[in-house]
């Protein structure tokens, strides 16, 4: 969905998105990494199973909830990537109750 502008100074890290290993700049958020390597919805909703993707990228909408390193309901747009991080789409699980 997104392409990278030339950036020669970018330090890269490897993250695993749905079993696929990809290299992304270390200052990406998890949501940025997913949008730059889009293969399908980053989550499906608990109510109807509808596909969703990140919407606001500033922590307001919670539509970017994903499973990161095995922990569900993580706000992918607010979490920086890290070497070896495992990122998975979140299927249906209801968001954290507050």
């Amino acid at each position: 969905m997104f392409k990278q502008l030339p950036d020669d100074n970018a330090e890269l890290v490897t993250v695993i998105i749905e079993e696929q290993s990809v290299k992304v700049p270390s200052d990406y958020s998890v949501a940025a990494a997913v949008l730059a390597n889009w293969t399908g919805p980053s989550r499906t909703t608990p109510v109807s199973g509808a596909p969703r993707g990140p919407y606001c990228m500033m922590g307001a909408c919670f539509d970017c909830l994903m499973e990161i390193d095995g922990v569900p309901n993580q706000q992918a747009c607010m979490i920086p990537v890290a070497e070896g991080m495992s990122i998975r789409r979140q299927d249906g699980a209801r968001g954290v109750e507050i």
């Binding site: 969905m1 997104f2 392409k3 990278q4 502008l5 950036d7 970018a10 700049p25 200052d27 990406y28 958020s29 940025a32 949008l35 730059a36 919805p41 980053s42 509808a50 596909p51 969703r52 993707g53 990140p54 919407y55 606001c56 990228m57 500033m58 539509d63």
Partner: peptide, 25 residues
């Protein structure tokens, strides 16, 4: 507006600033 691929303008600007990413297509 809830479909993937629909985002706010600010969201995309945020990706341009923070990650040098530009929407494709």
């Amino acid at each position: 507006w809830e479909l993937p691929g629909v985002m706010t303008c600010g969201a995309v600007q945020n990706m341009l600033k923070g990650s040098s990413l530009v929407p494709e297509g």
